[in-house]
Amino acid sequence: MTSYCKIDHVDKTFTRGSTETCVLKGITLDIEKGEYVSIIGHSGCGKSTLLNIVAGLTEATVGGVILEGKHVNEPGPDRAVVFQNHSLLPWLTVYDNVRLAVDKVFGAKKSRAERDEWTLHNLNLVQMTHAKDKRPSEISGGMKQRVGLARALAMEPKVLLLDEPFGALDALTRAHLQDTVMGLHQKLGNTVMMITHDVDEAVLLSDRIIMMTNGPAAQIGEILSVPIGRPRKRLELVTDATFLKCRQRVLEFLYERHRFVEAA
């Protein structure tokens, strides 16, 4: 049986001058359609590199990514990315940032009016319609991430790639956005691959948590399924036994078995 999205024996080695650094070694992962997968690991282990390989922004040294039976090796809107630093174009308004993606992806398929409607629909999904005529510099960090999310969703990607989407946000905004993402995943059934540093976030949102060992030559250390039904309620989970067990499992992996050794 072939899976929806398969990361197949991926190695990545960066060559800078004569020094070679092996960042990823033998990463194999199957992602099912509609699944929410988180990747967690210490800083610098190669999470972004892995995500960029799936996105096609970085080329794997060995191995590759197969999406719906097709080998993908260059970037495309079927693997939309929400970047950690939002990456909105500052000279475009919120609406135009999303519209740019909509025009590019649906330029041939939808009429002008339909594209306008689709842009507004996606802004509405992330509750950003009220700021559609503002520029990125005029809205808060959380709002920027919402727009980045709307832009990615508007492409109707097969896999949605999130690189620490909430990393730069304060705890309250972050919780709010996590709920938004959880609701959207429930509603739209996207396949999501998310990078995170935050154990609670990983357990709360994911169906499976991929724990990576420390680099160099990072591998998948352990995969944890989170057997908690959806919809999930943040407040109820705080005392949920399964939630706590999953959380403890990830914490043990990160802080006991693969403690981050600070480079001197």
Binding site: S87, V105, M155
Partner: peptide, 16 residues
């Protein structure tokens, strides 16, 4: 690089 990444994901051609 961020803007280049956005352009790459959107598959903008040279002209765009």
């Amino acid at each position: 690089q961020d803007y280049r990444n956005v352009a790459a994901v959107l598959q903008l051609n040279h002209f765009e």
